[in-house]
Design a protein around this nucleic acid. Structure first.
Lengths: 166, 166
DNA sequence: GTTATTGCAAATGATTTGCACAAGG
DNA sequence: CCTTGTGCAAATCATTTGCAATAAC
């Protein structure tokens, strides 16, 4: 985990007159021990799996806090629940491609894209604050080879596939 | 309302062995009598305001049907509920800019953007099925003039402003 | 000590669903 | 008729919240 994260959080907490707690520390530890997206529920499970016993309510409250501190972002993957993305610190302008075959989420960046978005926005008389591009796509490998390693992995892991609403 | 809509729906309904009902007709009429986005609840209210008395359950079921028939799209505007967009028939590739000041939603299209998205997607080994770009932006007019007609309108109409979660 | 934080359980809000009845083809 | 569609009310699911107990600072 990037050392700067703890620091940013501490600064934010101090500025707001809030308090450092064991629960918040544990939650931040778990979140940034990986670069995976997660739902509140998945995070809650990960916490139980380790020694932490924060309640669901605390998980939700802490997530709101981390969003406000800009340490994580909410993203919409198209299923019913909010997904959180811890990778915006390292890649502030990344976008998401969701494979409709297996649900795999690919993060990508493109400067041309950012530039073009900004042009379009200005032309409309606005100034962009944030953008989120989600591309739903099919896997070429699956089309060509009739199979795709990610699909197999997804089935094994029992991942929630897109557009299936659980 | 575009005459083609009814036709498309009829074709879809026939192909699926479903039935034409008064409720479905009324719902489609109301939706396509305007190009405005709507939530299920707003649609329900519009229906009550006219002579139709479809139940909420029927509204939800019909919306799912219309999405499946590709007559409307679900879009995410950042508040807690699903918003539906009836304008994809006329503008299949349009995107949304949401003003963070007043909540106004501007639809726009850009061929360069579509082309670039497609390039990026192919480079990643996928084929795009659909994309949704949402840009959150501030109004230049508000910044420069200290005011913006849309903001005033939004306040009068009591629109749900973005990120306020109701 | 004072004030923020937590956990619990109850509340909320959007959406879905089971079922008996109504209605399309 | 036979099957799909509807309305109702209850169920579900994610998320939020009131409150009393707990823990920062």
């Amino acid at each position: 985990m990037d050392a700067g994260i703890r620091e940013r959080l501490d600064t934010f907490i101090q500025k707001k007159g809030l308090r450092q707690t064991a629960q918040r520390d544990e939650i931040v530890d778990i979140i940034f021990s990986s670069d995976e997206h997660f739902t509140p529920d998945e995070l809650f499970d990960r916490l139980r799996a380790s020694r932490s016993k924060s309640s669901r309510a605390t998980v939700y409250r802490t997530l709101a806090l981390l969003v406000e501190a800009d340490l994580i972002h909410e993203i919409e993957l198209g299923d019913g629940q909010t997904t959180y993305d811890p990778n915006f610190l390292d890649h502030p302008n990344h976008n998401h491609l969701v494979c409709v075959d297996c649900g795999k989420v690919v993060e990508f960046e493109d400067n041309h894209l950012d530039l073009l978005n900004d042009c379009v926005t200005r032309r409309l008389g606005y100034r962009a604050v944030r953008q989120s591009l989600r591309i739903e796509a099919t896997c070429e490998r699956l089309r060509n080879d009739g199979n795709c390693p990610d699909l197999i992995q997804a089935r094994i892991k029992g991942k929630r596939l897109p557009n299936l609403k659980k």
